[in-house]
Simulated scan of single mutants.
Amino acid sequence: MTEVNEEMLTVPEQAARWWRVMQDDEPSAGEKRAFAAWVAESPKHIEEMLRLAQIHRAFSRGQVRWPEDAAEALIRAAKTAGEDTVVPLWPPRSSRPEPTRRPVRVAAFGLAATVLLAVCVSWFALSRAESFETKIGEQRSVMLDDGSRITLNTASRIEVRLRPDRRVIDLVRGEALFEVAHDAQRPFDVRIDDTVARAVGTQFEVDRRDNRTVVTVVEGRVAVTSAAAAAPHLLSAGERITVDSTGLGAVEKGIKLDDATAWTRRQLVFRRRPLGEIAEEFNRYNAAQVHIQSDTLRKQEVSGIFRTDDVSSFVALLASKPGVRVVGDGSGGYVVTSDDSASPHR
């Protein structure tokens, strides 16, 4: 943790700082002790942490439960204890405070501080993300504690948070197939920036690209929402939707699911797809990149089935076309030109 002069920060700034510290993957024992001491210093600290907790909906449902007393009552009790009252959670024997004339108020403050600390620590532990990723050309299957399975495609990364009231998966990059274990009490949300694909028990695929995201439902139903859309779209098996900066596109029906999930079998299936798009697909899976420098050639549509790692077959297909030349780029990849290339072959 970076050293910060607490006296230079306002109480809300201190609370925000402690929230970030405790959200770290592994706060140290010293940081936890310092946080506990900070919580116990003043009723204002309790109030600000409660305010942050409400913003983050930390106390809404599930195993992290607030006591029967309402949060507002605890705040009032902490405030009435007086700003000059300091009650450490674990005071040294030699510095235990003398009995006060306001034992009820001090006890209320101590209770509020203790409960807040326990709830915050539990919430931070539950909300911390677990990350999984793959490298270029790698695929990986992950079994979650709830029984769901996630298969990651090439160069992909997810962050998983299994909370008591819901399951949240952030698709940071790439593509993944989600086989969701049924749990009606805990929706399964896949988030891509401000787009959310929600399912309870189903199977669906999400493909995140630079300028769009594609959601394809294999089994069951999935609700897709976006900040740029007026209303969510409910997709059924065999349906697909594309999300971009303008919001949710039209629902595509009758999707060939074997084609959509072919990558799980390390296959690429193309049906009348432009050669430029096919080259981009191969480039996702392989360090050997294919660069087509002819706009006309990039727009030509072909159909075929390839292995994800079989770049040579695709390059051979390109080289077989009249007027096309393929040369190495010096780093294991290929430069493809044709008689109508915008830039001369080198």
Rank of each mutant, 00 (worst) to 15 (best):
102 R>H: 15
219 E>R: 13
291 H>T: 10
100 T>M: 06
80 T>D: 14
218 V>D: 12
152 L>R: 09
123 W>H: 07
206 V>C: 05
266 R>A: 02
196 V>G: 06
250 A>T: 13
262 A>W: 07
309 D>M: 09
339 D>I: 15
70 A>N: 10
151 T>K: 15
275 L>G: 04
143 M>V: 14
217 V>L: 07
50 L>K: 03
90 W>C: 09
166 R>N: 14
106 V>Q: 14
205 E>Y: 10
174 G>I: 00
299 K>W: 07
110 G>K: 08
111 L>N: 08
183 D>S: 09
166 R>S: 11
24 D>F: 04
65 R>H: 08
236 S>E: 15
247 G>E: 01
151 T>C: 08
110 G>H: 10
243 V>E: 09
334 Y>T: 02
49 M>K: 00
34 A>V: 00
11 V>A: 03
41 E>S: 05
152 L>D: 02
19 W>N: 02
174 G>D: 04
9 L>R: 01
148 S>I: 01
124 F>Q: 08
215 V>Q: 03
273 R>I: 11
80 T>G: 05
51 R>S: 12
13 E>D: 07
150 I>T: 03
203 Q>V: 15
286 N>T: 00
49 M>T: 00
315 V>H: 08
191 R>T: 06
111 L>G: 05
317 L>H: 09
18 W>G: 01
243 V>W: 11
315 V>C: 02
209 R>Y: 12
149 R>F: 05
254 G>R: 08
319 A>Y: 07
327 V>M: 08
318 L>D: 02
334 Y>Q: 02
320 S>T: 04
327 V>I: 13
245 S>C: 05
144 L>Q: 07
222 V>S: 03
251 V>A: 04
199 A>I: 01
178 F>I: 01
177 L>M: 15
332 G>F: 06
315 V>T: 03
246 T>R: 15
21 V>L: 07
184 A>M: 06
191 R>K: 12
309 D>S: 10
42 S>Y: 00
285 Y>C: 01
238 G>P: 10
42 S>C: 00
333 G>A: 03
59 F>K: 02
4 V>D: 00
221 R>I: 05
117 L>N: 08
281 E>W: 11
288 A>R: 15
56 H>F: 11
219 E>K: 11
319 A>L: 04
251 V>L: 06
134 T>L: 04
166 R>I: 00
103 P>W: 10
325 R>H: 13
264 T>N: 06
139 Q>H: 14
233 H>A: 13
132 F>W: 09
129 A>S: 13
210 D>I: 12
140 R>C: 02
323 G>I: 03
235 L>A: 01
134 T>W: 11
145 D>W: 06
25 D>Y: 09
225 T>E: 14
102 R>V: 10
312 S>W: 09
98 E>F: 15
281 E>G: 05
213 T>N: 11
123 W>P: 07
161 R>H: 11
111 L>T: 04
185 Q>I: 01
17 R>L: 08
29 A>S: 13
293 Q>I: 06
259 D>L: 05
310 D>Q: 10
346 R>N: 11
315 V>L: 01
209 R>H: 14
149 R>I: 06
309 D>E: 11
284 R>L: 06
285 Y>K: 03
275 L>Y: 11
267 Q>D: 05
67 P>D: 01
319 A>W: 09
244 D>R: 09
77 A>F: 03
319 A>R: 15
138 E>P: 13
66 W>R: 02
314 F>P: 10
48 E>N: 02
139 Q>R: 15
197 A>E: 08
247 G>D: 01
107 A>Q: 12
312 S>H: 13
290 V>M: 07
